[in-house]
Design a protein around this nucleic acid. Sequence first.
DNA 1: TTGTCGGTCCTTTTT
DNA 2: GGACCGACAA
Length: 821
Amino acid sequence: MSNGFDDIPFFDEEPAPRPLRGREPAPPAPSGGIAARAMAARDQHRAPDYLSGLNPEQREAVETLDGPVLVLAGAGTGKTRVLTTRIAHILASSRAYPSQILAVTFTNKAAREMKERIGVLVGAAVEGMPWMGTFHSIGVKLLRRHAELVGLKSSFTILDTDDVVRLIKQIIQAEGIDDKRWPAKQFAQMIDGWKNKGFGPADIPEGDARSFANGKGRELYASYQARLMTLNACDFGDLLLHPIRMFRAHPDVLKDYHDKFRYILVDEYQDTNTAQYMWLRLLAQRPKGTPQNVCCVGDDDQSIYGWRGAEVDNILRFEKDFPGAKVIKLERNYRSTEHILGAAAHLIAHNEGRLGKTLFTDRTDPDDDKVQVHAAWDSEEEARAVGEEIEQLQRQQHNLNDMAILVRASFQMREFEDRFVTLGLNYRVIGGPRFYERLEIRDALAYFRLVCQPADDLAFERIVNTPKRGLGDTTVRSLHDYARGRNIPMLAAAADLIETDEMKAKPRKSLFDVVTMFKRWQGLLETTPHTELAETILEESGYTDMWKNDKSAEAPGRLENLKELVRSMEAFESMRGFLEHIALVMDAEQNEDLDAVSIMTLHSAKGLEFETVFLPGWEEGLFPHQRALDEGGRSGLEEERRLAYVGLTRAKRRCHIWFVSNRRIHGLWQSTLPSRFLDELPVAHVDVAETDQSYGGYNRGGYGQSRFDSQEPFANAYSTPGWKRAQQNKTDATRDNWGTRSGVGLERIGYGESGPRARTIDGELVAKSKIDEPSKFNVGDRVFHIKFGNGNIAGIEGNKLTIDFDRAGQKRVLDGFVERV
DNA sequence: TTGTCGGTCCTTTTT
DNA sequence: GGACCGACAA
């Protein structure tokens, strides 16, 4: 089986290790220069196999190797295939060594996938690509090489969010600022935001600086950075910012990398933030006359990370940054049915700031289902109905692995989990609390870190009294002061202090034990296999015993996790190697063998695809989310719409959308309006599902009778009272922002024409909490609630009523949902 | 030093 | 409704 690579000489690694200043050897250049000619030398009539399956646009994106290229790749148009084939093509045509290609992704998952797929194309040569990885992992690699240029030692540690918050808290307290009023977590987020924008302490806008801790924002940021330096540590943002500073301050170093990276490729370009953009521009923009072989792939319609600093503008201004750039659109979709594509395309057309792509497919099959819209009474019924749908598919021999439930917010998952547990339906939650973030794992890692890196004060503080050794705040504080005063690590300070009389006997003894333990472990570091050492550390420190003696329900699971942690170290050469890996890769592999429905947020679904997709919770306030509307205005709404677009385009064959009329939010039942996005779906590609169970038809047992129960079952969801009431409310509050735009947004589904409908940006839940207004109800009033039935008011706070319901017991509800009887 | 009570928060999340 | 954090008392 020939894939066109069999006889191409690949170089596993650059003739290592070479001084940086030395120029890369040019790969054996084919005399003609262009790829096609190189290939033709081997095969006169036929392009290599790896190119033959591509459509013309994809092929252009792969073969345009000279100069800047922007590939606008819609959902399901073979984006990853283009990227990987392009790399294969660069290698096959001997344009560069594997080590001369810089390929950047956002997530480790994407990097892994890319590596795998390139491996399939080119075999072992992929192992020679050290510069393929996430922005952050490449940043680490650069920094380890040149740490001293930014004032670090190359053994620097990488702090995760948890460490950062604890560190910032210390700094806030040290400045004598009230850390209740000015929470460290909030400031950590501010710093992260600044770093995303590429701001150092000197660069932050005056307003930002003033907004925290009575104007001390800048000062605090500066002391945080100073503290990181003394700790020889970086946070995630620094992994980008330090290289940027370094490249700016040392053009000679930058030049070396210009020479080195002959080809630069960037995945998911729409997600780059300003810092990443600056980083990339430094590396990709070359002096005039030198080749700028940069290729960015992205989809502006799938930009859903604006809230964490991603700048869609980066994709929009690519052509300005790289004059003469070739822009290639991939619009042929290989994933979904025409109905799903039609629905998605029509929805996303409501956005204004777009580059404008329209997905199409040749595949038409009269048997394909349209996108189904379902209504349910409340979230419980929604979960029940989705469960039934899944079981039905299962009976038709569909795999659970091919189905996914994509929610807007993670609290929605719970209802589905509960339901699936009762049904005995396998499910897997993706993106929940992650392995390496668990308490016991972080504790264990702190031990390992401190052994490898005795200067890691954060690790020291974390475990010095875990398990309990009688070393409380007082002891730690005095250690801290001593260490700061002498500018030495805390572990060293501890070693000093136990030699003196400054401490009381008890803490002194404990501290002595700690110091001795760590000394011994450090001695074992080079001689003992690292998994064995890890076990020794956990045993001797008393950490495993701590959990063995713990009678709580989680303890056995935590011990299990610790074992798993040690097992996972086997794959690494050393403890240091392991720590480096997990500092950047916080995810652990999921069990793929189990056949299970996936439950995840829309955000984590990006890049995935499923035969059948369920999209619950399409209600105003939830999706689009109220906060996105309040804080993001028009652009917030557009990002929500892109999220909806991402959701729809995950589906290959079947897509079911749900909305409910009642949802419990923050413990209170609220009645909800169907999402405006439902109005934006095209009639031609959508079916409103028959609901024999919703509303009228379903027996809700002894739970409060609905006043609609006596009526006829509804023909379809759009004629249900919830929907009608919703539409009524919408027209009542008409503020028409879009109505006059032509062509889009005016089609409606299954209900009568009534003129342009309101599409307000600040679409609100029906009721909001209002504390100040006097209530129109009195204690003792007899009232009716749509879900809970009749009851008496037991208490009133603002518009929140406490009601003793005849059947449902005591509940707190908003006064908008009850009426006097 | 440890356990319990009460107040607050509640979108999305990678590195 | 419930998880998490900090203050407070034993």
